[in-house]
Design a protein around this nucleic acid. Structure first.
Lengths: 156, 156
DNA sequence: CCTAAATAGTCAACGAGGTTGTCTTTCATG
DNA sequence: CATGAAAGACAACCTCGTTGACTATTTAGG
């Protein structure tokens, strides 16, 4: 059909929408004192989870090398979002856990994302947003917790 | 409503869908010999356009410094996608133009994106895909040609 | 029981892709 | 014609990834 948009409009709009939401949330986070937090850090926090993780775990979950995961952890420890603790059962491991500051950032993120979604339902209506989410779920079969955002744009 | 998904599912799915499409297209490109092409390079080609551009133009369109644009151009000239030519009307300018190799990559990209969209219409139906695109257009008011992808994840 | 292999973490060197600052050349303008 | 703006290039630096090498520790097998 000649009235169909060029094929790249769909991915472009998907990314634009994603970026718009994430930018809004991070502007709110920055205003609340979390100005060193980057979009990827939210994924790091999710990958660490409530029970903590080791650097090697984190690397596997994020799809990066353990060295890269270690560097990211170093930076987030410096900024007060993570703390390392020795594992009493295995002297090689150092478990990383979220600090209260990280939990604060997570709570603010979740609230910000919810507000963004509310704006979508105000603009588009509840049914359309639900249908849009259903459509996206259908087309993204992969495990949403494969959190390998970092470095994705750069390539191999 | 308690049955609403967590707010971050929407942006996550948007990104996952975007990435899935782009990964497919770039896998096809790599198989066709364009294995050094990155997702950002498609935006560079679009920003250069059919009439060519200078490094400073490109930097402005992409939202990066002219030095960064110059480095990107250097790399794409090395890989055979761009060529520089002196501007006869202005000895300062060097106009960059797409080579046939770049046009080949663009044609394959467009075909790949069209195939991806076709898969969406097969899976979801024409009406739902159109409605999804309409919804995304409504929620992304910004100019789609503000192509400042590169470096977005890294932050300032 | 003890050796061999796997795993965790760290250090170092490097590359890609951004940044800012500085400089020269060239054009445009008062 | 002098002066300022713009284009391109060079250098130093930052961030965030990579691979390779190395140590310490745990686990598995003969």
């Amino acid at each position: 059909m000649s009235s169909d948009p060029p094929g790249f409009e769909l991915p472009l709009r998907l990314f634009l929408a994603f970026r718009t939401i994430v930018d809004e949330v991070h502007a709110e986070l920055a205003a609340a004192g979390h100005d060193r937090l980057r979009p990827t850090h939210g994924f790091v926090f999710q990958a660490i989870g409530p029970h903590g993780a080791t650097a090697a775990d984190l690397g596997r979950r994020l799809g990066v090398s353990k060295q890269a995961a270690g560097k990211t952890i170093d930076a987030l420890v410096r900024d007060g979002y993570l703390e390392r603790a020795a594992d009493p059962a295995d002297a090689r491991r150092k478990t990383v856990r979220l600090t209260p500051r990280a939990h604060d950032a997570l709570a603010r993120s979740e609230a910000g994302f919810a507000r963004a979604r509310d704006r979508w339902t105000t603009e588009l209506g509840t049914a359309r947003v639900r249908d849009l989410e259903d459509a996206l779920r259908t087309m993204t079969t992969e495990d949403p917790w494969r959190l390998d955002l970092p470095g994705w744009f750069g390539g191999p």
